[in-house]
Amino acid sequence: MPKITYIEHSGKEHVIDVPAGMSVMEGAVKNAIPGIDADCGGACACATCHVYVDEAWAGKTGTPSGMEQSMLDFASEVEPSSRLSCQIKVTVELDGLVVRMPKSQH
């Protein structure tokens, strides 16, 4: 099962096995990792599952869709590596992925 490292804003790391097919957001929420709110549950309706994708992985996670990019434009503390984690589907190729959380989702 792909392992994903979630790093809280405080620096605290969580290494989690996330089944392929789930989203990076679901991996966090289902394991009660603080820092990803995901209020809408993954419908791309709330922009509260913002993460930064570690540079080394940017090529494998793909680029945001137009809908996702427009949502991200209104998130706080956006960086070029910003993604909505509900829109990143976990695959075996993402084994080892590292994502960092922003200070706040609101």
Binding site: M22, E26, V29, K30, N31, A32, C40, G41, A43
Partner: peptide
């Protein structure tokens, strides 16, 4: 569990019930 998908991706069969749980039962 999340109710909004009931009339959307749960009805269509795209999401199974355990994907709708807010948290897995064991948490």
């Amino acid at each position: 569990y999340q109710r909004p998908p009931l009339s959307k991706k749960y009805l269509s069969g795209e999401l199974p019930l355990d994907r709708l749980f807010l948290r897995p039962a064991e948490t």
